[in-house]
């Protein structure tokens, strides 16, 4: 082995007066900017929210009005005066989809809000309470979570019958258990942070710790999850309605519209009476999911590219 070759002593040019400051930390992650799919999601979601609020004013006919009282026939093809055709009782499909938007979205939104209110209050509460309270609450919640949601819905509807308040309450309570688990986990994660301990050492009360230390940090992940939870609630409510156990006829709702017009697939002149409400739900939930996915995909490493 040859002896190491002599290296030169290299000194970079310098200015005696330049101080070597601490190098800054990594730049903070960039603010979220929607990608193309994100924008598609935002536009479609906003469209449906608009219809949900104003649909009943803009609809060409009433919810149960017959556009062609003289020419009664189910599942008529689209024509002048009924651009999406008519349904099983010869009502205007377009008008019913527009009325249904408010009901489907409204019920789901109210249920999700309820789920969040109950779930977050109890979840954060469990996180800041002692281990004993937390364990009791979590065990009860686990038992609740180990049931298929639709089964719980069926039992409740069987017991007390179906009405809009019952639907909101049922979906709200079922999904509150999911929100409970999530917000408890987020709360627990924040509770072990040094800044929470610093607040405890300072002598801060529980209320300050919850409102000033935990909530501001738990807010963002919970809001992101809200979209996802809303999707599940919409699907749950629609499935119940589809099974005939949710919104009751003659009220229009997307899930029940699919069910009552299911015959169109076999012997209808037009299948739009089934397709329109099904597409309405799918475009709404899918577009919300596109937003959620876009927000959560923002950031993250890609090691496996270099394999």
């Amino acid at each position: 082995m040859s002896a190491p070759v002599h290296h030169p002593h290299v000194v970079a040019p310098f200015d005696e007066n330049v101080s070597f400051d601490e190098l800054p930390d990594a730049p903070p992650s960039q603010a979220y900017r929607p990608t193309l799919t994100g924008w598609i999601g935002i536009i479609i979601t906003c469209f449906w929210l608009f219809i949900a609020v104003f649909g009943s004013f803009l609809a060409p006919y009433g919810e149960n009005a017959l556009p062609f009282p003289d020419d009664y026939a189910e599942f008529q093809s689209p024509k002048e005066g009924a651009s999406l055709g008519t349904d099983v009782e010869d009502r205007d499909v377009l008008s019913r989809v527009m009325y249904g938007a408010g009901r489907t979205i409204g019920i789901s939104f109210a249920a999700t809000l309820l789920a969040y209110f109950v779930g977050v209050v109890l979840g954060i509460g469990a996180a800041v309470s002692g281990p004993r309270v937390d364990m009791v609450m979590s065990r009860i919640n686990d038992a609740f979570l180990s049931l298929p949601t639709i089964m719980l819905g069926l039992v409740v509807v069987a017991a007390v019958g179906s009405s809009i308040p019952v639907l909101i309450l049922t979906a709200g309570m079922i999904y509150a258990s999911v929100v409970f688990r999530l917000s408890r986990a987020i709360g627990m994660e924040i509770m072990v942070m040094d800044y929470v301990e610093a607040a405890k050492v300072r002598g801060e009360g529980r209320w300050w710790i919850i409102t000033r230390e935990i909530w501001p940090n738990a807010r963002m992940p919970l809001i992101t999850d809200f979209g996802l939870r809303l999707i599940y609630v919409i699907l749950f409510i629609s499935s119940l309605s589809f099974l005939g156990l949710g919104v009751q006829p003659p009220q229009a709702d997307w899930g029940s519209m699919v069910r009552e017009n299911l015959g169109a697939l076999q012997y209808g002149e037009s299948q739009l009476a089934v397709i329109a409400p099904a597409v309405a739900i799918a475009t709404l939930t899918v577009s919300i999911n596109l937003i959620v996915d876009d927000v959560s995909a923002h950031g993250g490493g890609k090691l496996s590219k270099r394999m």
């Binding site: 290296h7 000194v11 970079a12």
Partner: peptide, 23 residues
């Protein structure tokens, strides 16, 4: 190294006992 640039390089005894660069 400082900020991705070589500030000084040399045999160990030179750098340890007789550094030249202010950094």
């Amino acid at each position: 190294l400082y900020s991705g640039e070589v500030k000084e390089a040399g045999p160990t005894d030179v750098i340890i006992n007789n550094p030249k660069h202010p950094y």
